[in-house]
Computed example of a mutant assay.
Amino acid sequence: MAQMKPTIQINRERLEKVATILKTVAHPTRLAVIDLLGTQERMSVNDMCEILDCEQSLLSHHLIVLKQRGILHHVKEGQNVYYSLKNKDILKLIACIENCDCSL
């Protein structure tokens, strides 16, 4: 008599969402922005450039990607644009991966 395989359901939509988030944050500059904004309520592009020691054009590119994917929120005040985390739960992802016992 043949054994029956257990029914396993995979929520592909959920996994696609997770993969998109991981792909979005999988860059050292983007992770640095998220980490930095985890310590500050909001920051201007100029302040982030100074702290992260990177060119404004490069940082702006990464900020646009994070904003388009719904990770960052922005507010324009006069000539300055201030960024903040839309949801601080993204910091849990970084902490979880940081504590992962993987040999890389």
Rank of each mutant, 00 (worst) to 15 (best):
L37W: 08
Q68L: 12
S60Y: 04
V65S: 04
G38F: 08
T39C: 07
E41F: 14
H74M: 03
G38N: 04
H61T: 04
T39D: 09
L37H: 09
D53T: 03
A26E: 10
R42V: 07
A19W: 04
E41G: 13
L66I: 06
A32L: 03
I71E: 02
T29V: 15
E16G: 08
D53F: 03
H61W: 02
E16L: 09
V45G: 07
H74V: 02
I51N: 02
H62Q: 07
Q56K: 02
N46V: 02
A19D: 15
K67S: 09
L37G: 10
H74A: 09
Q40W: 11
H73T: 12
D35A: 06
S57N: 00
S44I: 03
Q68Y: 10
P28Y: 11
C49M: 06
V25P: 10
T20G: 05
H62D: 07
D47L: 00
C54E: 00
T24F: 05
V25G: 12
L72Y: 10
E13Y: 14
K23W: 12
T20H: 06
L36G: 14
S44T: 10
M48K: 01
H27Q: 11
R30K: 13
E55Q: 03
E55V: 05
Q68A: 14
M48T: 04
Q56V: 00
E16Y: 13
L36N: 14
L59M: 05
E41A: 14
K23M: 13
L31G: 15
Q40Y: 14
L63C: 07
I71H: 04
D53Y: 03
T39M: 03
H61Y: 09
L22K: 14
I21P: 05
Q68F: 09
R69S: 06
T24W: 07
H73S: 11
H27L: 11
K67Y: 12
C49Q: 09
L15R: 13
E41S: 12
E13K: 14
H27D: 15
D47F: 01
H62S: 02
D35C: 05
I71Y: 08
Q68K: 10
L59W: 05
D35L: 02
T39F: 03
P28E: 09
T29N: 11
R69M: 05
H62L: 01
T24L: 05
E50D: 06
L37Y: 06
A32G: 12
D47G: 00
L72F: 12
G70Q: 00
